[in-house]
Design a protein around this nucleic acid. Sequence first.
DNA 1: ATATATTTGGAACGTTCATTTCAAATAAAA
DNA 2: TTTTATTTGAAATGAACGTTCCAAATATAT
Lengths: 193, 193
Amino acid sequence: MPKVETFDKELVLKKATYVFHNKGFNATSMQDLVDATALNRSSIYNSFGSKLDLFLECLKSYENIYTIKICETLHKADNSLHAIELLFEFYINEIINDKDGKGCLVVNCASEMANQEQSLTNFLCSNQDSFIELLEGLVLKGQEESTINLKRTSKEYAFYLLSSIRGLRTTGILISNKKDLQTIAKTIIQTLI
Amino acid sequence: MPKVETFDKELVLKKATYVFHNKGFNATSMQDLVDATALNRSSIYNSFGSKLDLFLECLKSYENIYTIKICETLHKADNSLHAIELLFEFYINEIINDKDGKGCLVVNCASEMANQEQSLTNFLCSNQDSFIELLEGLVLKGQEESTINLKRTSKEYAFYLLSSIRGLRTTGILISNKKDLQTIAKTIIQTLI
DNA sequence: ATATATTTGGAACGTTCATTTCAAATAAAA
DNA sequence: TTTTATTTGAAATGAACGTTCCAAATATAT
């Protein structure tokens, strides 16, 4: 019976995500989103609810896209240590290709709003938990196959890697020299060997 | 001849800094600053210029306060490695005592606005340069006194530490468990020994 | 005491904000 | 073809935004 949603939701989310990523949540206006998505105000509100709701959907979409990219990256590895090396290489390329110096949407979101909006904190915590889980599994496998040392538990190394990756992402906002970033990454990984 | 500025500029900056730190630049309104400082709108504009100007002054004030705190911390150390350990301990305590989960004002500022406002980028770069200089000197001294290894140059380790500290600060927004943070710090420092 | 440069208080500025409203357009189902 | 649920466009909402303005208050220097 009804007229059906005509726009490509994935594409709209991608465009909205770019704006949020570039300007941050608070500096992004509804007008910015209308301009970027070429959707009408009403359509945005109809389809997504509020600005915050849309932002949350963008975060989830961003998370999904990255999860896929990361899985693809990890599959190319011979062993777990190599996988972690590829993971850092992946992030360095993300930084290099980020010409606007936007940083990571999720990390930025934590900086800007983690202590202000519970719904975001919930997202960020669950995002963190899944990432820790991924890293812990990776390290554990590396320790089993003896490519990663046993000086610390897999969980401890997972936290270390999480923190290090966030640091690299943040540092990449101001430093986008590939050599410098690679040296940092090598130094981070050195600990595991 | 003139009536003279009556308020305590240092104190006003401290109060304004707290608001900016807690809510971020864009989410902070001029009304918030009026309320927090108990100054009149006109007085703020008269004394500081614009919201952005005031923010920049807050950043500088924040930077100065931290520079002093860090210098005091480093002075307590027996050697350079110990100094770095104390530095991490200092940051961990900052995180623990930050009950609102605000994170670091400077790191947050980079996330929120580094790619939007040149005046901030300038500040952030010069802030980064001084910090790199401090860390490099520390590592160099540690290498001379053989408390830090020579696997990498002092400059390389300085970048590594910079990135690691930022990571720790960002991670501390969501994780404020002291044990976890200490383990991360130990793992970071391990590389230098 | 008077003059003077500056700071204040409070209202007002025009703009932009997120969101709502509602009639017109639309496309599937009957 | 008519009905119907939904999406759309455009304008309007009131509140909040950063900033400005100006008269009144004030503290120093004369």
